[in-house]
Amino acid sequence: MRQEPVDYIARTREQYSVLGYPVYSWVENPAAPPFARPERPPSEWKVGLVASGGIYALGQPAFHFKDDLSFRAIATDAVVADLRVTHFAYDLTDAREDPNVVLPLDTLRRLASAGEIGALGPNAYTFMGGIYSARKVREVLAPSIADHLENDEVDVALMVPV
């Protein structure tokens, strides 16, 4: 039977209530988001990639599970077999089986080869997520990732949470 999308906010609220945890406040941004439109067609885009989900590459240190605000640059020509995934909050089975499900490097390379997008930026940027302080994400992590995307001169960016 077809079911509605899982309401993770409601389920978290139920679970926290039963476990006696304090109520978790999700970020709410009722005001319209900033909005910029691409100036050129997809076949001319240099595409940036940002992913949470705790992906690191062999040779890099892993993330930790307690509000890790660091991030990693992973070259977009990296071999997917050299990617690793670690996280405290989601089922890692499929991400470890095929890291493209959380960091779609092969997918983007296929689409670039087919001419559906122009190219990838030099690096993907990955971080842990699960950072409790929205203020730190907004004021510390977000501007730093945005700086790197600007330096890479990407035309658009694909954001992949888990």
Partner: peptide, 8 residues
Amino acid sequence: MGLIAREV
């Protein structure tokens, strides 16, 4: 991630 998307 949405917060980062808004900043970018």
